[in-house]
Design a protein around this nucleic acid. Structure first.
Length: 565
RNA sequence: GCGCGGGUAGUCUAGCGGUAGGACAACGCCCUUCCGAGGCGUUAGCCCGGGUUCGAAUCCCGGCCCGCGCACCA
């Protein structure tokens, strides 16, 4: 186990789930400090992607009904067809293997794969025969209700809950684009072989924003705020660019402005929580790498001891999801977009002559009339309509042509969706790894977690200089004071003062308050800064205000009091 | 899922057929006026299940977990 993982487990950031039963790969427990850290990261995320956007956050079930995933495409495209060798036991994705060995594309159905295997007598690389092809679904399935029940799946992404609620959401946002809908929650994928700590989990935490825009307006009013930011980009041809976002959008490296905006915003968010800029890049998906729903897609990748890992996906999902859910549910999922000026449209309209149609078509007359009214093809003196599968030719005897002028106030459009999707587990881990450091204090090596103050799981530790009265009682008093102000505060009187400082350094606590002899003379204590180990002396009464200011900023403690040793 | 290598107190590690040992951590007491000091004491372990054997942490088989390679990763 790496040093950092050893520390994270020992000090209570991450634990193996179900450990006393031998554990289960792909599941982790957020221990007290890890849980605090992730929650704090979520709060910074909210600040960036909900509060500071025209956006709202919702929470939908983690179990989804089958219809949702048939519509979303996960029930089919998430189900790869797998082939397994009888001899060596290796398992391949059938479409990949067929393409590699035979150079042909095969549909991802069991039947299609079976046919190809028979026609070409496909063998394993080891020479062995393959077993029957079988589906391999990455979604956890379950039954809803007693008895046979209804098929359900644990959601493989939080996004679908948002698309499904689109009608209600559009009305919540007063039918006006653009708007964003966020969801933070668990998602599930039954991975074949989860590995590498928190990098591939079977149950994981996502923070997703679905930002609905007009398809012709893939811009964002706030783009200028990030336009000048220099970003490291790796495009789909593996070309590296160190370039400003405005330039990248102008040159067409990034498909549209709004993708550029969210790349910039994502970068600023990651930097704020402590990801190192030189270990961050944005990589464009190659054409064969994109998910079934996306057109352009950029991943934020962060360098860790596992190499470059994907932590955020920023995709233009177009109108794929809304169109699919509309088709499968029968609901119209559109937004009415008014024109700035209503447009007057002249058009020719066919008006059925009922007095002729009635006698000629009897009981079919009504349907014929409807078909004439709805007719929108090229018309001449004779038109052809279809009623109940029967083609009927009609001449001018049966309809009149009227020229009408209609006012069209706007159009119904299916919004496109820009989706920044964050993997909170990987992000939390990367933040910890980037913060993990060693330095030397008084000739002694020290392990210190240089977490940003905004994400530190313990904000302040209060320590008696000596573990005896009256130091202990005074320290406890200060703990109560700070806790009542909402500051996450710990108390520790075990071992010596040096040992306690090191303990809190190791878990990234930015400030230690020490009660010393002088405290009893003038009601002052010292604040020690984790990174510099310097101390300043301040009045106990001023502590809450000073600490809150320090925790919300990255200001120096020396601004707040006289330096002490 | 396949192959290789691992799994001994909270952590690291010794033992590799014959009574499981240490270091650090944690906890208690003493000592200590600022950066993992010291003393005394305490807690705590052979991944799980089967087999071989008089006797298994040790050898064999299966499972689980961890690491690496292959495959997989909408």
């Amino acid at each position: 186990m790496s040093d950092i993982m050893e520390m994270l487990v020992r000090r209570g950031f991450l634990w193996q789930s179900f450990e006393i039963y031998g554990g289960m790969a792909g599941f982790i427990d957020y221990a007290p400090l890890g849980n605090n850290l992730r929650r704090k990261i979520e709060n910074v995320w909210r600040k960036y992607f909900v509060i500071n956007e025209r956006a709202a956050e919702i929470d939908t079930p983690t179990v989804g009904i089958e219809d949702v995933f048939i519509a979303s495409g996960h029930a089919t495209s998430f189900t790869d067809v797998a082939i397994e060798c009888e001899d060596c036991g290796r398992v391949y994705r059938a479409d990949h293997y067929v393409k590699e060995k035979l150079g042909i594309e095969v549909d991802e159905t069991v039947e299609a794969v079976k046919e190809v295997m028979e026609v070409y007598d496909l063998k394993c690389e080891c020479g062995g025969k393959f077993k029957e092809p079988a589906p391999m679904n990455l979604m956890f399935s379950t039954k809803i209700g007693p008895g046979k029940g209804k098929n359900g799946y644990l959601r493989p992404e939080t996004a679908q809950g948002i698309f499904v609620d689109f009608k209600r959401l559009a009305s919540y946002f007063r039918e006006k684009l653009p708007f964003g809908v966020a969801q933070i929650g668990r998602a599930y994928r039954n991975e074949i072989s989860p590995r590498q700590g928190v990098v591939r989990l079977r149950e994981f935490n996502q923070a997703e924003l679905e930002y609905f825009v007009h398809p012709a307006e893939k811009t964002h009013p706030e783009f200028p705020t990030v336009a000048g930011d220099k970003v490291k980009l790796v495009d789909k041809f593996d070309n590296e660019h160190q370039i400003t976002l405005s330039e990248a959008v102008e040159k067409g490296i990034i498909a549209n402005q709004i993708l550029g905006y969210f790349i910039g915003k994502t970068r600023r968010f990651l930097l704020e929580i402590g990801i190192k800029d030189d270990k961050l890049r944005f990589r464009q998906h190659k054409d064969d790498e994109r998910a079934h729903y996306a057109t352009d897609c950029w991943d934020a990748e962060v360098e860790t001891s596992y190499g470059w890992i994907e932590v955020v996906g920023i995709a233009d999902r177009t109108d794929y999801d809304l169109r699919r859910h509309s088709a499968y549910s029968g609901e119209e999922l559109t937004i009415f977009v008014p024109y700035t000026q209503p447009v007057k449209v002249k058009r020719k309209k066919l008006v059925p002559k009922m007095n002729k149609i009635g006698p000629a078509f009897k009981e079919k007359a009504k349907k014929v009339a409807e078909a004439i009214s709805e007719f929108d093809g090229e018309y001449s003196d004779e038109i052809e309509i279809v009623v109940d599968g029967e083609r009927i030719k009609l001449n001018r005897e049966f309809f009149d042509v009227e020229e009408v002028e209609e006012e069209v106030a706007g159009e119904k459009i299916v919004p496109h969706v820009i989706e920044p999707s964050f993997g909170l587990d990987r992000i939390s881990y990367a933040v910890l790894e980037h913060a993990f450091d060693r330095d030397v204090v008084d000739g002694e090596e020290r392990r210190v977690l240089r977490l940003k103050r905004s994400v530190s799981p313990i904000e302040v530790a209060v320590l008696p200089l000596l573990s005896r009265e009256p130091f202990e009682s005074k320290a406890q008093e200060i703990v109560s004071l700070l806790r009542s102000e909402g500051i996450i505060t710990e108390y520790d009187d075990s071992g010596s003062i040096g040992r306690r400082y090191r303990r809190f350094d190791e878990v990234g606590t930015p400030f230690c308050i020490t009660v010393d002899h002088q405290t009893f003379e003038d009601e002052t204590v010292t604040i020690r800064d984790r990174d510099t180990t310097r101390q300043v002396r301040v009045k106990i009464g001023d502590l809450p205000a000073i600490l809150k200011e320090l925790l919300e900023s990255e200001r120096e403690i020396t601004e707040f009091g006289e330096v002490f040793r």
